[in-house]
Design a protein around this nucleic acid. Structure first.
Length: 352
DNA sequence: AACAAGAACAACCGCTGCAAC
DNA sequence: GGTTGCAGCGGTTGTTCTTGT
């Protein structure tokens, strides 16, 4: 039943196009039009599938294609249109003459997405995300926190890091809060992943009954537990349930040298606190508790469609094309947060 | 100069919607 | 109404280029 994909044809060439192939295709279409893409390759003397010919023509060989860098105006327009349409690249490309959907899609994925993230804007929702802002600045924050050139050792060695700014501390507190708040929503899970690597399940580590971290004291305890965990020590800390299972890190992963799990320097994640600012941080942390979850994609609202760019017909067509509309929360994500089996985070996951 | 890592880009793959039969 | 063929779309992958060490 069904048809075989055109590209299943045996002996059909794949991969980059040669100049000779390009010329053949251009000549043929100039003289005959593309007609049926399926039959074009044979007629044009090309050993390619029709789909490949169509893609090559529409994305690169068409005479009306505009090459070169995107202008700032085009960038702004893409962002604007994406905020209204989502990943409807073909629709977006109709508003950028000479640009193909593929080109816009690639440009979005390689440039614009990162640009928005750096601005602290969620590229999916186009809303401001304070947590993202902080996370994307994490490398800078960490490097500034490590600017003294020494390896972080004792998190409660309060006087050890005088150069660390309060801003960095607050950022780290917020990051930890965000991460842990999410982790708290899950139940404990196994202590190793499918690769057999030990996994640091913070929920297990802290105990599921622990209230969400809302003040620095709790974060200090987390930090203490982390170090105990990394040192292979399971000595309980007052008020915090003992973690299940032991993790004995290799000698070169002990805290005090380069503390690593799966090659990632987790020591850098530790939260340093200056006692002089504890009260301020506490207050700030309280005020900047974990932002409420933002839907993975916004609900589409046709009233937002800019009539400067779209006719009424296009608006209704776009609206029907976006089917189903944006999902408030992907099921997989929701499951990740509630299903104890599905929720098995390693540091790589967290850092990602 | 050599190599590795990351970025950018081109092309492919699988799916969907639509029209013809 | 079901099947088939086709074009188009969006996600993903593979290759090439660039930059840093």
């Amino acid at each position: 039943m069904g048809r075989s994909p055109c590209c299943d044809e045996r002996g059909v060439k794949k991969g980059p196009w040669t100049q000779e192939e390009d010329e053949k295709l251009i000549d043929y279409i100039k003289n005959n039009g593309h007609g049926s893409w399926r039959h074009l390759p044979r007629s044009a003397g090309l050993n390619r599938c029709g789909k490949s010919c169509r893609l090559r023509w529409t994305n690169y060989l068409r005479p009306d294609i505009k090459r070169g860098k995107f202008t700032e105006e085009e960038e702004a327009l893409i962002i604007h249109l994406h905020s209204m349409l989502g990943n409807k690249w073909s629709l977006i490309s109709t508003k950028l003459p000479g640009r193909t959907d593929n080109e816009i899609k690639n440009y979005w994925n390689t440039h614009l997405k990162k640009k928005l993230l750096l601005m602290g804007i969620d590229p999916v929702t186009h809303r401001r995300r304070p947590d993202l802002e902080l996370l994307t600045n994490l490398p800078n924050l960490i490097s500034s926190s490590n600017s003294t050139g020494r390896v972080l050792t004792n998190s409660w060695d309060i006087n050890a890091f005088q150069l660390q700014s309060d801003v960095v501390q607050l950022a780290q507190v917020q990051i930890m809060q965000s991460l842990l708040h999410a982790l708290m929503a899950s139940s404990p899970s196994s202590s190793s992943n499918s690769n057999g690597h030990p996994h640091l399940n913070l929920n297990t580590l802290l105990g599921s009954s622990l209230a969400p971290l809302r003040n620095v004291n709790n974060i200090l305890e987390v930090n203490r537990q982390l170090e105990a965990f990394l040192n292979g020590s399971t000595a309980p800390v007052a008020g915090i349930p003992q973690m299940a299972g032991n993790y004995d890190p290799p000698q070169d992963q002990k805290v005090g040298s380069e503390t690593k799990i799966d090659g990632i320097n987790v020591g850098k994640l530790q939260v340093m606190l200056n006692p002089n600012t504890i009260h301020e941080i506490n207050a700030a942390a309280e005020a900047t508790s974990v932002p409420s979850l933002v839907p993975a994609s916004p609900e589409i609202d046709t009233t937002l469609f800019d009539h400067h760019f779209f006719s009424s017909n296009e608006i209704s067509a776009a609206n029907s094309a976006i089917s189903p509309p944006f999902h408030p929360c992907p099921e997989s994500d929701a499951q990740r947060l509630t299903d104890p089996d599905a929720f098995d985070l390693g540091w790589e996951d967290i850092l990602e």
